[in-house]
Simulated assay, not measured.
Amino acid sequence: MSNPITSEILPESLLEHRAVKAWRGLRLGLGEPASIEILKKSHKKRAIYRLAGVGLQGAAVIAKRCQMTTGLIERTIYEQVLPHLPVTAPHYYGFAEEDDTFCWLFLEDVGRERFSPLVEEHRLLAARWLGRMHTAAAHGATAARLPDRGPAHYLEHLRSARRTILRNLTNPALDTDDVAVLKTIVSQCDALEAGWHELEKCCESMPSTLVHSDFRAKNVYVRTDQAGTALFPIDWETAGWGVPAADLAHSRRRYLGHHVDLITYLDIVRECWPSIDMSALQLLVRVGFVFRRLAGINWTSRSLASEWTEEPIACMRVYQAELSEKMQAAPWAR
């Protein structure tokens, strides 16, 4: 999973590293690391390490440090949900609290090959994996243990993004063109909210189920071994319970039509959901695209208070253009 970076100085004794201390706290008796690779380091927040040789049969283990709020969601998924579903998943070693704010998750290292929507085999794998997960999880008693990820969740993303954008329009780091883009996004949010009931209707044809909510290349790995080629989604921080719209929608404009093989997905889910047809599925994908963009706008808007706005504004320009394209033919935005 991921490639190493070198922005952190490791202690002379690896046993003194915080990831190793947390790993040893699990008391699994699986040994000490031969080396540590830094895969991701975010100041005071997330950090991901590869601990070489400490897993089963000497395999590497991924140690992920994250905030407790999202770590508990992932813990629920790995401990209580995925083991009961007919899908592939990384081996889960355990969970450790660091303090009241941060925790650690320890998972099997499933390799370095990422899912690519541009590869047909990967799109077929994604369709089968998601189809099996969505239909199997819909019958389980998991809803009460997971946060809501239905239309109401994304409506809150919309409202939060709009509030944040309006609050930061007077940032002197923004020029006239930047402000115009942001005001256009606010208008798009107004139009979407006005037609939100229509968007909700588009979701009524699909049952609620477990959703990953951030199913994209950086969060999905592909591994080929003697058993064949298999998919391994990771990073369940935004997972929850809702219609599978966001899981089916592509994350980038260049992947238009190249995310999940919908024909294969439909063949699988129809066994449990016979009323679903391709037109309903395609409509759900369009809704999912809007959901994903609203979440992206909300996350990006939090950087607008900074004096360095070039990167968030560049993202906002893309989001604005993509929403405009989708809303032109959308019944919920007329």
Rank of each mutant, 00 (worst) to 15 (best):
V220Y: 03
F232G: 03
N219E: 02
W236A: 07
L210Y: 12
T224H: 14
V222K: 05
T224P: 07
L210C: 04
W196V: 07
W236Q: 03
F232Y: 15
T224I: 08
A239R: 04
F215A: 00
A239F: 04
I234C: 06
R216Q: 12
M206A: 09
G228S: 14
L199Y: 07
V222F: 02
K218N: 10
A217F: 01
D235G: 08
D214R: 04
D225T: 14
Q226Y: 14
A230Y: 03
D225V: 07
W196R: 09
T229M: 05
T238N: 13
Y221E: 11
G228C: 10
G195P: 06
G228Q: 13
M206S: 14
Q226P: 11
A217N: 07
L210E: 06
E198A: 11
E198K: 09
A227E: 15
S213N: 15
T238V: 11
C202Q: 13
N219Q: 05
E237G: 04
E198W: 08
A227S: 15
G228L: 13
F232H: 06
R223C: 00
H197E: 10
S213W: 03
D214I: 00
E200D: 14
R223Y: 05
V211G: 07
A217S: 14
G228N: 13
G195W: 02
K201W: 13
L231W: 05
R216T: 01
A230Q: 11
K201Y: 01
F232E: 08
T224L: 12
N219D: 00
R216P: 07
V211I: 12
K201S: 01
S213F: 12
T238Q: 10
H212S: 01
V222E: 00
S208D: 02
Y221P: 01
C202A: 15
V222G: 02
S213A: 15
E198R: 13
F215D: 09
S213L: 07
V222C: 01
P233C: 01
H197Y: 10
I234S: 01
S205A: 15
V211E: 11
V211D: 04
T229P: 10
T209I: 08
D235L: 01
F232S: 03
R223Q: 10
T224W: 04
H212N: 10
L231D: 09
R216D: 04
T224R: 15
R223P: 00
L199N: 09
Q226L: 00
Y221T: 06
E200T: 15
I234W: 08
S205H: 10
S205K: 12
C202I: 02
W196L: 03
W241L: 06
A239M: 02
W236L: 11
L199E: 12
N219F: 04
L231T: 01
H197I: 11
E204P: 03
V211A: 12
W236G: 03
E200I: 10
G228T: 12
L210T: 08
G228H: 10
K201F: 05
Y221D: 08
S208P: 05
N219L: 06
